[in-house]
């Protein structure tokens, strides 16, 4: 507790574990029916209606260039809050499975490898070592800071009303 502790929500894509700051997570839901939206990139699966809010859904596997997989009962959508031009917007991220909420200290986190610090790869905040496992800690805002997502958010995503 001496250093700065933070809480991460961990999830997995295939064999790899990923983490995202719990403060960015709004809620976790099971798979819902996704309404596809035409003329969007492949990784944008469409939109859902969550209790009256329209939320765009991204498939992280596709985004990360991994092999696509049939959604099953373990597939979850992590609804995250993204700061978009000062406005908090909701975004659904499809992952294979959510694991747990863990508390990590700074000394458990190593910086991302230097060679990966290209424009494409600066979404990795660091590499966390949790109970013998390695968790890639993502900057979820950075993951989706691309033209198409921004456009999508501008048009379809609902602004969170505080």
């Amino acid at each position: 507790m001496a250093t700065n502790d933070q809480k991460l929500l961990t999830f997995s894509l295939g064999e790899e574990g990923y983490g995202v700051s719990i403060l960015k997570v709004k809620e976790i839901i099971g798979m819902l029916e996704i309404t596809p939206v035409p003329k969007t990139p492949e990784f944008i699966k469409g939109v859902i209606n969550l209790r009256g809010k329209i939320i765009p859904i991204m498939d992280l596997r596709i985004k990360f260039g991994m092999e696509q997989q049939q959604y099953d009962e373990r597939t979850c959508i992590i609804v995250v809050e993204i700061d978009f031009k000062g406005v908090q917007k909701l975004l659904g991220v499809v992952v294979d499975m959510v694991s747990e909420v863990v508390t990590v200290s700074d000394d458990q986190i190593e910086p991302p490898p230097e060679y990966g610090k290209t424009a494409e790869h600066n979404f990795i905040l660091g590499i966390g070592k949790i109970k013998e496992r390695v968790v890639i800690i993502l900057d979820i805002e950075e993951v989706f800071s691309c033209e198409e997502v921004l456009k999508m958010l501008e048009n379809n995503s609902q602004t969170i009303k505080e």
Partner: peptide, 16 residues
């Protein structure tokens, strides 16, 4: 499974 997700959501809420 549902309970698990609920507990995770609870954890998220607690963290917030």
């Amino acid at each position: 499974f549902q309970t698990n997700i609920l507990s995770l959501n609870a954890a998220v809420e607690a963290a917030r």
